[in-house]
Design a protein around this nucleic acid. Sequence first.
DNA 1: GTCATCAATAAGTCTGACTTTTTGTCTCCG
DNA 2: CGGAGACAAAAAGTCAGACTTATTGATGAC
Lengths: 233, 233
Amino acid sequence: MTTPGRGLHGHVLDTLGPEITAGEYPPGSVLRTDELAQRFDVSRSVMREAVRVLESMYLVESRRRVGVTVRPKSEWNVYDPQVIRWRLAGADRPRQLRSLTVLRSAVEPIAAGLAARHATAEQCAELTECALGMVAHSRGHKLEGYLLHDVAFHRVVLEASGNEMFARLGDVVAEVLTGRTQHDVMFEDPDPAAVTLHVQVAEAVRAGDAARAEALTREITVGALQELDILAP
Amino acid sequence: MTTPGRGLHGHVLDTLGPEITAGEYPPGSVLRTDELAQRFDVSRSVMREAVRVLESMYLVESRRRVGVTVRPKSEWNVYDPQVIRWRLAGADRPRQLRSLTVLRSAVEPIAAGLAARHATAEQCAELTECALGMVAHSRGHKLEGYLLHDVAFHRVVLEASGNEMFARLGDVVAEVLTGRTQHDVMFEDPDPAAVTLHVQVAEAVRAGDAARAEALTREITVGALQELDILAP
DNA sequence: GTCATCAATAAGTCTGACTTTTTGTCTCCG
DNA sequence: CGGAGACAAAAAGTCAGACTTATTGATGAC
């Protein structure tokens, strides 16, 4: 949640963005700037700024004499944090959650392997701290505290990988983990096996054992896939 | 290359975007909308639209009474195709190329495994066609033709994975492969072993052998990592 | 030294007029 | 009947200027 609604054009986006990403306007639909400005009761200047932002997300395309046409889903910039948030809040939330979890399963093991080779002493300490925090909150309906440390753990791993593309996925992972706790599964205490795996990953990274860190993280992500019934037999 | 410079604000972005991503303005630098408008000889409206776009890429932050401040590199949306292109055209091109190649090495093997399970008959045919095209252009300084089929090959794999997040990385991979051919290595004909691997991946996907497709693709990406001297001993 | 007040500042917003490009249509001629 | 060119309408694009609002740094009172 960077800074939502920072201005009139932000408010427009908060409404129009979710509508478009929810698929309310089929691809090729045409919107008119003037009509939108009327609908949201803002000036054309403000509406134009909003359209520019939507355009930079590849959600729409603005062409003269035609209007603002909605692009097909396949062209959307699905890595834009805003777009991710809008879609997670919308109807195809489950689908989105699956896509992101699969992405996690590809990236996090490699990131953990790199972290084992690049992590600073401080990052190793943070990692151990997070893992211990997870252990401490793993029993007795302390899901909020558990989630907090879980998110922090994965964020540190992605950071410590030293790869900027991986590091930028911290927010995505946070959204996925948060969403999972809040909605879908995990009514009771978290899987003890998962907790153990996190502790072991922290150890492996500290020991500089890249292969082991990668393998253990792969086990974690396989668990995440199974939770969503994404099998790979 | 979607549609560059489609309007005055696009021209402004083409200049200002590369400047910012090149790090010409240190984090925290303050730009003023009015001054920028003067510099580019455009109206404030146009300048404001450009700033909004930069803001949606997390390159800058616009605050009242302060101005447009440049955000630290760690907050940039490095998955934005435009940002990727700007950075690849700039000074830290090598660094960017490495980051993206590591990302490829994480994603593509998993994508190939999924493709083996989800690819349609048509996609399998396309894949075989691309692989054969690579073979046909693998000797005799036909790098342009080879590159074309190589890009298409990886694009189809990512598409066929059925995961939208993977599919959207097609452009990124295209940039990396193109950049590699144009600048860095590959003055002579491509590595015959790599060509063979591509053919074998196409076979594995067609046969529905996920594990084999994944392993073979991992060999391809390991080769890509080695080309850039990114080792993992 | 701390807190409230106030003025300067730069972004934010609105309005209205004008320009430019594109597209659909309508004619005119083959 | 069909194609090429001219024309008009439509919508985005651009600009200029006036006004509003939030923020911040400085000033001054306690």
